[in-house]
Design a binder for these strands. Structure first.
Lengths: 204, 204
DNA sequence: CAATGATTTAATCAAATGATTAAAATACTT
DNA sequence: AAGTATTTTAATCATTTGATTAAATCATTG
């Protein structure tokens, strides 16, 4: 590691490849992405990709790891914050997700589809199990409504929040939304979903 | 068309290829599927695939067309039935989707992801726009709650119903569900989602 | 500045893959 | 049964694609 010392991150070859890989893998998925596409997008020689990352698969795993962390990073800290109420947590999860997904609309479909196809070796195995089931969020829900299965409740919040992004191509196909009205709709949902979830919490 | 007359559908080569194509395309998506995989799954010579369907893309478009119709076929007739109440429609959509998706858990992620990647030429262009916006469902919703945007309302129902299937790999990764408890959960949701949606309808 | 190590390039490989072809086998018609 | 059309097969193409190699360039160190 002789060179590379004073080279700013943006012009660092390794970083240029990562940036390009994120973009191309996210757009096309693992199988439809050719290493040549990434090289071209990065403006580098194809051999450099293998020089820095060994293989297409290794580079992809790196990107996947990031994207999964991005997706869980929105919800994890909120679930475990003992300082906030259940209502506040709901608001934070909803607006947190919508803000990130308006900027990265393809993120959930990409991750969920690649997971489904098992195109990914889990590198960093986190004990998500306990992290969620022991969370402050679940405890607070139990106090309020011990009869509601936390899985149902979380699925409702995420379904209302994340699903529209997954279903976006279909919503556009049906003419129910266009590129502009979709974002308006999502911003409205930041206020609306917490109201609806509270209605569900009251329902019996 | 000389032969093929008395040949039962199951042993019909064209049909065998379609059955195999549905299976393999659904599991792997367009790009990760090789025509050789389909031929092997169908137990036929590779050349027959091109003989009957001209190309991988044409065969894929056929499968996509079917899958999209399957996905919309659940909801379309319910939305437009003037004989049922809004409450009944909600119940029918929810249980209709859950029943089909328990048997075809990969259907939504497959379709939504391939649509996202635009791996598909829409052959049969249906005026889904009017079909939905002019539907009995939307009219009934307007009568009950003119202030609720129908898009929000439909997204809520579909989000709560369809999203769990899309998120299944992630729910399993977090240890929140396993293969067995997932189906139990989905069956519970057939009863629960209509209750929750009614709570949303009452909320202000 | 020369020597050393890191980075980059052009050229090339080997395997995979969608598709085609010509011939063989099979079924249908008269 | 002979002749014709359809279906199936084995072999082969032409590209694409992930990866490697050897040589060239560049930067750093002593």
């Amino acid at each position: 590691m002789a060179a590379k010392k004073n080279i700013p991150v943006e012009t660092n070859t390794e970083e240029k490849i990562k940036v390009a890989a994120r973009k191309v893998f996210m757009r096309n998925g693992f199988s439809a992405t050719r290493t040549r596409d990434i090289a071209e997008e990065a403006g580098i020689n194809l051999a450099l990709l293998n020089y820095y990352f060994r293989s297409k698969k290794k580079l992809f795993d790196l990107v996947m790891q990031e994207k999964i962390q991005k997706l869980f990073g929105i919800i994890a800290p909120v679930l475990n914050d003992t300082a906030t109420t259940l209502e506040t947590k709901i608001e934070l999860i909803v607006s947190g997700y919508i803000d990130v997904l308006v900027e990265n609309p393809d993120l959930p479909t990409f991750v969920l589809n690649e997971l489904r196809k098992k195109n990914f070796e889990i590198i960093q195995k986190i004990p998500l199990d306990k992290l969620i089931t022991q969370s402050s969020f679940i405890q607070q829900l139990r106090e309020k409504r011990a009869d509601i299965n936390p899985a149902h409740f979380l699925v409702n919040i995420l379904g209302m929040t994340v699903f529209p992004f997954v279903a976006k191509p279909m919503l556009m196909m049906t003419g129910m939304v266009n590129e502009k009205s979709f974002n308006t709709l999502m911003n409205e949902r930041k206020q609306l979903i917490p109201v609806w979830i509270k209605a569900i919490l009251k329902a019996k």
